[in-house]
Amino acid sequence: MSVQPILDKFIEDEKKQIDRLLPNFINELKAPASLKEAMIYSLEAGGKRVRPILLLATLKGFRQPLTNGYDVACALEMIHTYSLIHDDLPAMDDDDLRRGKPTNHKVFGEALAILAGDGLLTYSFQLIAGLDYLSADKKVSVIGKIAAASGPTGMVGGQVEDMEGEDQLLDVEQLQHIHHRKTGDLLSVALECGAILSSATKTETKELKLFGKHLGIAFQIKDDLLDVEGDEDKIGKPVGSDETNNKTTYPKVLGMEGAKEKLSFHLSSAKNHLNNVEIDKDILLGLVDYIGSRTS
């Protein structure tokens, strides 16, 4: 039987579950209504929920209950969403649209958008810290991994390097370093967290982390390609925004064909690392192909 129908159902079912849970967490908070509204606005703006789905697919691969992963998966999506709110601000990318909707600061103003992002980031750690079904060791490990992946040595540092790289033509190694941090680290940590929650071995966790690193680079290359040849209605933002912002991209450095070859290399490398793990691989392998062929 083809794995595609199973993969499609898994993505559809788990995306619906994450979409349902995310606003519930925020609605339950004793916080200003305007702040909760701004936080929920961006959480409900859509998105592929790739990070939560990778975490849940890892749990499924290790034959663990998915209920053990929903809270951490939602925390990861909150961190990802905070980063998008801040990326879109006038001080950074100055984008008017995100996923086909006005960006957070266009609706709520810059000050509340910043605070909504701050709220999502900090609450994500509060959420994980309060999980009574996780051991203290697992909570500390998960929080530490996510903090490293999203902080100054991870996503935040990658965003700084990305900003500093504007108006410069970076080489492939510099570009890859930025995207390892900016995109790859948070994708990798989703798999690491899935491994930790599944009590995987250190070797299995390391291989899944490397799997995620290559997948993160592939994800970014695909983003760069879609910015050139994507459908604006599907990607939810204007095509060519990277060129407008004078960003170095894989197509700019390697050309379209070279970027597509690099995409293929990283997808293949991801699969090689996954094959080193004793896990039910069907859904995770399917997700590699899904990321490589996506249109939005």
Rank of each mutant, 00 (worst) to 15 (best):
L284V: 05
K145D: 04
V50P: 01
Q159E: 11
A75T: 10
D289K: 05
M78H: 03
V228M: 11
L43D: 01
K30Q: 13
N246D: 06
Y290Q: 10
V189P: 09
R294L: 05
L187H: 12
V50Q: 05
A73M: 03
E204F: 01
V72Q: 05
L121D: 05
R51A: 05
F25P: 02
S269Q: 15
A129T: 05
G119P: 00
K106R: 15
G100A: 08
G184A: 13
T244I: 06
K139E: 12
E110W: 03
K36F: 00
G119R: 08
Q159W: 01
S150M: 12
T153L: 10
G130R: 02
K48N: 06
V142W: 07
Q64A: 04
V72G: 07
L274Y: 00
L112Y: 09
I114C: 04
V50T: 09
R63M: 05
L191I: 13
T58Y: 03
G194Y: 12
A129K: 10
A113C: 08
I18T: 06
H105C: 02
G216W: 01
Y290V: 06
D13V: 14
I79D: 00
N276K: 14
Y250A: 11
A116K: 10
L210T: 15
T205F: 08
S141Q: 12
T203L: 11
K15T: 15
A149D: 11
I40N: 02
E192N: 12
L169Y: 06
E261Y: 02
L56Q: 01
L115W: 05
L7C: 11
T205E: 13
S150N: 13
S135H: 12
E232I: 04
H214Q: 12
T249C: 02
E204D: 11
V142A: 02
F125H: 05
K206A: 15
K262V: 06
M39R: 06
K48L: 08
A33C: 06
P238N: 09
L127Q: 09
A31G: 08
N246V: 03
H180M: 08
G151F: 10
Q64E: 13
T201I: 11
T248I: 06
N245H: 14
I11T: 09
K30D: 15
P238G: 10
L267S: 01
D162H: 03
P238K: 13
Q126Y: 09
E110G: 00
L197P: 14
A190G: 14
R63H: 07
C193T: 14
G117E: 00
G117Y: 00
A200M: 07
K138S: 11
A218I: 08
P251A: 03
L285P: 14
E243R: 07
F62C: 02
T248N: 05
V172P: 01
E37R: 07
I6Y: 12
T205H: 03
Y290H: 10
R51E: 03
E110F: 00
R99V: 06
T249E: 09
E173D: 13
G240C: 07
A57M: 02
E37C: 02
K15W: 09
K209F: 15
A33N: 12
K252H: 11
S269E: 15
S293A: 12
M39Y: 00
M155D: 13
Q4F: 14
G46C: 04
M163C: 13
A200H: 08
L134N: 06
Q159S: 09
L215G: 01
L120E: 00
S269W: 02
L287M: 14
F125C: 03
I85Q: 12
E173T: 07
K106D: 14
D280W: 02
K145Q: 09
Q168F: 13
H80R: 04
